[in-house]
Amino acid sequence: MAIRITCISKDNGYHENPNLAITHLGWINEETKESGKSTRLEIYFWIKNKNGYAYVTDVYGNRVKVITAETAHGTQYLKTEADNTVRNNLLSLPECK
């Protein structure tokens, strides 16, 4: 199953790594039209342990894969694979309502 991340929710604290501010992610399965909102760790474990595939699309419709990562202290978070843009594809998504 693949999901497209459509929005993010962030907390307001300071984070050395801005991806750690993401608390929730909104998503849609474009095949089934199922949608939802999950915590950062729910999506992290779904990708890491269940071979889930998540992506974001840029303004041109290009897909960029969402991958798992960990800080040096072991904090688990999500980011996108490097692509040909300097923008942070995940952090550029709108805030979830």
Rank of each mutant, 00 (worst) to 15 (best):
L20Q: 05
S92D: 14
M1V: 05
W46D: 10
S9R: 11
Y53C: 08
T32I: 00
V86F: 14
G26N: 05
I22E: 04
K37E: 11
E81P: 10
I3C: 06
Y77A: 01
I8S: 07
G74L: 08
S38D: 06
H73P: 00
K48Q: 15
K10G: 01
C96H: 00
T23V: 09
G74H: 11
T23G: 05
V56P: 02
D58E: 07
H73I: 04
D58P: 03
F45D: 11
L41D: 05
I28Q: 08
V59Q: 15
V59A: 14
R4H: 09
G36K: 07
I5S: 06
K33E: 06
A2K: 15
Y14W: 12
Y53S: 12
V56D: 07
V66H: 10
W27I: 00
T75E: 13
T80D: 08
H15C: 05
N19D: 15
L91N: 09
H15M: 07
E31I: 04
S9P: 01
G26C: 07
N89C: 10
N17C: 11
S9T: 09
S9V: 01
E31G: 00
E42A: 11
E70P: 08
K37A: 04
L93P: 01
Y77G: 00
M1C: 10
T68V: 12
N84M: 13
I28R: 08
N12V: 05
R87G: 06
T80V: 11
I47N: 10
N12G: 12
L90I: 03
H73M: 12
S92T: 07
T39K: 12
I5C: 02
E81Y: 09
K37R: 15
N51M: 14
R87T: 09
L25G: 01
R87W: 06
D58L: 05
E16Y: 14
H24T: 03
D11H: 11
K79F: 07
N29H: 02
T32C: 02
E30V: 04
G61N: 11
S38E: 03
T71W: 07
T80P: 05
H73R: 15
A21T: 10
R40S: 11
S38V: 00
K37C: 09
T57Q: 13
V64R: 15
K37M: 12
Y53H: 13
Y55W: 08
T85Y: 09
Y77Q: 03
T71A: 06
S92Y: 10
A72D: 14
C96S: 01
N89Q: 15
E34T: 06
C96F: 00
L78N: 03
E95H: 10
T32Q: 03
S9M: 05
I22G: 01
L25E: 03
L25D: 02
S92E: 13
E81K: 15
L93D: 07
K37S: 08
L93W: 04
N89D: 15
